[in-house]
């Protein structure tokens, strides 16, 4: 733990990691209960295309990926509605196309190199100060928007039809949650990489849902699991000289397994 107070790069990583993990945790609870856990996986592939496009255009990959992912996520939503596809079919199509685009753009740019690998596997320790503040601001905005719309989001998740009748604007909220997810995924790929970012959304929320007796408790437990994963993952990775991304996800899995066993024992 002492290292966290000594090294600036660790402090930056911790600050960005905590905010991003909190955004993932609150969104994750809604996504899991909406049976939309795989959307994180799909959007991470889209984000890959966005990063490749950023490298190809020689612009800030994080920003290009943000814009690209937001539009692509709205495309998934539209495809689901207009083509009458099941949620996972639309995600599978769009994510495959995203990956294909990413591979082609990265090859065309001649930049299929270290920078792209950093996005694939995550390199939170190398996060730039400007990226830290962008991540903190966006992650805080995601958390505030979810908490601000907590009740209609919950109603929509629990009983879509009744929510619609009572005047909840279900399409607008669907779009909002999709856009927030795509923003969070792009931020999360800086922490754990494109390949593992969906774990940051799914695992803490799944751990929280094991033990929660109320919705508020599910959100709080999910946030707690996310914070513990980031802090313990960073510290362990630093001391064991192992990749931070893998360690954060493994700590998250240990917390999920512990909460699962605890629930089993209790019931």
């Amino acid at each position: 733990m002492e290292a966290l107070f000594t090294y600036g790069f660790l402090q930056r990583a911790l600050l960005a990691g905590l905010f991003i993990a909190l955004a993932c945790a609150v969104l994750g609870v809604f996504l899991l209960l909406r049976k939309d856990a795989m959307i994180g996986h799909g959007l991470s592939h889209i984000a890959f295309a966005g990063v490749a496009l950023g490298l190809f255009l020689q612009m800030m990959p994080l920003v290009v990926a943000l814009v690209f992912s937001v539009f692509a996520s709205l495309g998934i939503m539209k495809l689901k509605e207009s083509a009458g596809l099941h949620g996972d079919t639309a995600i599978a199509i769009v994510s495959s196309v995203g990956m294909a685009l990413g591979i082609i753009l990265a090859t065309l740019s001649g930049n299929f190199s270290v920078s792209l690998l950093n996005y694939l596997f995550g390199e939170i320790l190398a996060i730039e100060p400007v990226e830290v503040w962008l991540s903190v601001a966006l992650a805080a905005a995601v958390v505030l928007l979810v908490v601000g719309n907590y009740r209609p989001f919950m109603y929509l998740t629990f009983d879509r039809e009744a929510a619609k009748v009572s005047g909840v604007r279900v399409r607008r909220l669907d779009a909002l949650i999709t856009v927030l997810t795509s923003v969070t995924i792009v931020l999360g790929m800086k922490v754990v990489g494109i390949l593992l970012v969906s774990a940051l959304i799914v695992i803490p929320a799944a751990a929280g849902l094991q033990l929660a007796a109320s919705f508020k408790a599910a959100l709080l437990l999910s946030c707690l699991a996310a914070v513990l994963s980031v802090v313990a993952g960073l510290v362990l990775a630093f001391h064991l000289d192992l990749p931070v991304s893998g360690m954060i996800v493994l700590v998250g899995f240990v917390l999920f397994a512990a909460s699962f066993l605890w629930r089993k024992k209790r019931s």
Binding site: L33, Y155, F158, S166, S214
Partner: peptide
């Protein structure tokens, strides 16, 4: 398994 108390279900509307 939806983690909502009876009170939260009523309050969501």
């Amino acid at each position: 398994l939806f983690p909502a108390s009876a009170r939260e279900v009523v309050a969501m509307a």
